[in-house]
């Protein structure tokens, strides 16, 4: 036995013995001692209501806030990631102009989740649609399937990502609804940054929430409602 072999052996040796290490009991003991934190709840459905009447053409504050929060470069080349974008619309027949932010619509029936071969695209029980980058193989089928063009593919190796927002080359990504903020009781960076309070964030399932009340009393639309995807992001004024 060489010196280094012995070293490695000692390095990894546990008092329990190397042969029969079972992970599960360790975790169970740990969980009992520690207490399990609460996960996402299926009673909740996170969503947003976007009031396009208040959204200013040319204002890009939501996009800037998103880029800063999630560590995106802010570049707009065809290979750059854009999780949220401002779209300027002009009604072809009447000429009426509207400006609005567009991002992942967090569908109830998301096509990206249906088509993903590895279950990397998934919907959390509280309605947030995410990409599990541990599983994403970068096939880009979800980008083909998304009716809102909400997803971007990371075309280059990345460095110095936000510790709260892991992102990496060769995987697909999109708006996470700032899930890392939501899980701490916060709200998405875009909603927080908007100077005109265009983006109202909340729980669609909670009848007493501001968003649910507004959706009850005002007329709003789902974009591409014809596809019956029931997006969690709703728009007023289009």
């Amino acid at each position: 036995m060489s010196e280094i072999d012995t070293q490695r052996r000692n390095f990894l040796k546990t008092s329990a013995g190397a042969a029969a290490v079972l992970i599960a009991p360790g975790f169970m003991l740990f969980d009992i001692a520690h207490g399990k934190p609460q996960g996402a709840s299926n009673k909740v459905r996170w969503g947003m209501l976007i009031d396009t009447a208040k959204c200013k053409s040319g204002c890009n504050d939501c996009v800037t806030a998103c880029n800063r929060e999630n560590g995106l470069s802010g570049g707009t080349a065809a290979t750059d990631s854009q999780w949220i974008r401002k779209i300027e619309l002009k009604d072809i027949s009447s000429g009426r102009e509207v400006s609005l932010p567009m991002m992942c619509q967090h569908c109830e029936n998301p096509p990206c989740v249906d088509v993903c071969p590895t279950n990397a695209s998934f919907k959390r029980v509280d309605g947030i649609v995410l990409v599990d980058k541990h599983r994403c193989i970068g096939c880009r089928y979800c980008m083909m399937a998304c009716p809102y063009k909400a997803r971007s593919f990371v075309h280059e190796p990345l460095h110095d990502q936000n510790p709260d927002v892991p992102r990496g080359r060769g995987t697909v990504e999109s708006c996470t609804l700032c899930v890392h903020r939501i899980d701490q009781g916060g709200k998405p960076a875009c909603a927080e940054a908007c100077p005109n309070n265009v983006i109202l964030f909340g729980d669609l399932n909670d009848a007493d929430s501001e968003i649910a009340k507004k959706l009850r009393s005002l007329s709003s639309v789902q974009i591409r409602a014809d596809l019956h995807l029931n997006p969690g992001v709703r728009y007023q004024g289009i």
Partner: peptide, 16 residues
Amino acid sequence: PLDIFHGYAVSSTFGD
């Protein structure tokens, strides 16, 4: 281009 907003002429930084 994807027809996301039917009946509107659209423009954005993301090729809409």
